[in-house]
Design a protein around this nucleic acid. Structure first.
Lengths: 152, 152
DNA sequence: ATTGAAATCATTAGCGA
DNA sequence: TCGCTAATGATTTCAAT
């Protein structure tokens, strides 16, 4: 079922689970006026089709000690080093996301650390210790006024 | 319980729910060799403390028709317009995230659209239609080789 | 998409270390 | 305080329709 097209019921189920992944299928069924078994069947189908890829709790990063988020533009000395650099970046748990983009950077990273001091250490000890990293440009996030999911 | 400090059991519970928010508390209990009631109690406590803020399913954006992700650096004509611009950005469902950062941009946005054509339309019809937007710099994401959560 | 039934789970309260 | 057990009502899950 690689090219299963969702219908409006699927869409409503996705919205409900996007808002609260742990809510019971029966609750969703009652909201949508269908049987519990139907929700179950649809969710399974969307899982099999690769539309639903998993679920996770959302946590407050600050309460877990990761108070500082940084976006970072990276320049490499040569584009051929990309896969080697990525392999290295994967070993740094501070690197949450890496984007290969058009525009003036080789890579853009999203990084989470405990503090500015930790970020400084991360930069000089880890990131700039990679030979192929030519330069970096840091955008330290002071606030994230918008954070939401794609409109389903 | 605003300053509740988590212990190693909490940490393991968070890891488990981060990997799969819908797995049953009893399953987690068996993995961690404690009772189901204990998991329940801990989760409730972490919710009350604001450590767990919710849960959501993860979906494949491409399968839902949002094939193009763009990071965008925004320059405003004047910093005082920030709140007005943010209010406007909130009305655009294409804007998933907005970061107020140090460095050369007033704001950095993460945007999801169906196609490059849609992105072009979004840029000229919506974003650049805001008076206070001076200029934009687009970083179109061709690949996202790293995507993970903070290390708990 | 529904039903119905068996297995499993969530949730709470009270007990004990 | 923290984790455990026990009990009940709710949910999940699956097969048949």
């Amino acid at each position: 079922m690689e090219n299963y097209q969702i219908d409006s019921l699927d869409r409503e189920i996705l919205k409900a689970l996007q808002a609260d992944a742990r809510q019971s299928y029966l609750d969703i069924a009652r909201q949508l006026d269908v049987s519990g078994g139907t929700i179950h069947q649809r969710v399974n189908r969307m899982r099999a089709a690769g539309i639903i890829t998993g679920s996770k709790i959302t946590v407050d990063a600050k309460r877990l000690g990761h108070g500082v988020t940084v976006l970072l533009g990276l320049h490499l000395t040569n584009a051929k080093a990309m896969s080697k650099v990525l392999a290295k970046l994967e070993t740094f748990p501070e690197v949450l996301e890496a984007y290969y983009t058009t525009g003036g950077f080789s890579l853009i990273l999203k990084i989470a650390v405990r503090s500015i001091e930790d970020y400084h250490q991360f930069l000089i000890r880890k990131l700039q210790a990679i030979d192929e990293v030519q330069s970096t440009e840091s955008f330290i996030c002071m606030d994230q006024p918008i954070n939401r999911d794609i409109e389903i």
